[in-house]
Amino acid sequence: MAENDAKRAAAEAAIAEVRDDMLVGLGTGSTAAYAIAGLGRRIAGGLRMSAVATSLATETAARAAGIPLLPFEDVSQVDIAIDGADEIDPAFRAIKGGGGALLREKIVAASARRMICIVDASKTVRQLGAHPLPIEVLPFARSFVSEAVRGLGGEPRLRLGPTGEPARSDQGNLLIDCVFGPIADPEALAAALSDIPGMLGHGLFLREIDALVIGGPNGIERRERSTTVR
């Protein structure tokens, strides 16, 4: 199964869980885009649902697909969140944020009664860290946070836009990709990053994901977290 076909298959399997009158958190990125398109088709076929979006790009795609949107600032909980990942390990710990929406994605995931991660098989790893860890940083604190990341053993790289300017999140903050190599203790790293003033959010998702749907050469594999601890 080709990578795009695997992503599409994982997305279709996840959106099958959406029922009438659910509020769905829509993720950001290439895999989540298949879920958005699929939900649009289900709405055209009669599904009644509404959604919140984790990014401006997702808002645009959802509206184009005919999905009714609510402003997340008026929402305290969603029924299901569906999103991809850059890496995910057997303990359902993930690195997310390659698309730059990690802070909004984490907030929506934390609000979800059930968070479903959809990936192609290439995103499953034994240990996190091959993919850089994105963080969202207050522009005022760029140098301070970067030096603190170095103190934790990481190499911070300011993310740049297509014309060489610093990339910005939808909140107008800077995005820094931190190269740590294999992460032996994701929980300890997450706690240390969260203690850095000016670091607004990191891409380690350690407790948010409840279910994993993997599209691979042999079809769809579903995994459930045995005991969900939030």
Rank of each mutant, 00 (worst) to 15 (best):
Y34M: 06
A35P: 09
A35L: 12
A35G: 12
I36Y: 06
G38R: 02
G38N: 05
L39F: 05
G40F: 05
G40K: 06
G40Y: 06
R42H: 06
I43Y: 03
A44N: 10
G46H: 07
G46P: 08
L47Y: 06
L47E: 08
M49N: 09
M49L: 15
A51C: 12
V52H: 12
A53S: 14
S55G: 13
S55Y: 08
S55K: 08
L56A: 15
L56Q: 13
A57N: 13
T58S: 15
T60F: 09
T60I: 14
R63I: 12
R63D: 02
R63V: 11
A65N: 03
A65K: 03
G66L: 02
I67G: 02
I67V: 08
P68Y: 04
P68S: 04
E73R: 13
E73H: 15
E73D: 15
D74M: 12
V75K: 09
V75N: 10
S76E: 15
V78W: 03
D79Y: 06
I82F: 10
A85P: 08
D86C: 09
D89Q: 10
P90Y: 07
A91Y: 11
A91K: 13
A91N: 14
F92W: 09
A94I: 10
A94K: 08
A94T: 10
I95Y: 06
G97Q: 01
G97H: 03
G99P: 03
G99N: 06
G99K: 06
G100W: 03
G100P: 00
L103Y: 10
L103A: 15
R104L: 15
R104Q: 14
R104N: 14
V108N: 08
V108Q: 08
A109W: 07
A110G: 15
A110F: 13
A112D: 07
R113F: 15
R113M: 13
R113V: 09
R114M: 12
I116Q: 08
I116W: 05
I118H: 07
I118V: 14
V119K: 07
V119A: 07
D120S: 06
A121H: 15
S122I: 04
S122L: 12
K123A: 08
T124M: 14
T124V: 15
R126A: 14
Q127K: 10
L128T: 11
L128C: 11
A130R: 12
P132H: 07
P134F: 02
P134T: 03
I135M: 06
E136W: 03
E136V: 04
L138R: 06
L138N: 03
F140A: 02
F140H: 05
A141Q: 00
A141D: 01
A141Y: 00
R142A: 08
S143D: 12
S143F: 01
F144G: 01
E147F: 01
V149R: 00
V149C: 05
R150P: 02
R150H: 02
L152I: 05
L152A: 05
G154H: 00
E155R: 07
R157C: 02
R157S: 02
L158R: 00
L158N: 00
R159C: 01
R159A: 02
G161S: 03
G161F: 01
G161T: 00
G161D: 04
G161L: 01
P162L: 01
G164Q: 00
G164E: 00
E165L: 00
P166C: 01
A167L: 04
A167E: 05
R168Y: 01
R168T: 00
Q171Y: 14
G172Q: 05
N173A: 04
L174R: 00
D177Q: 03
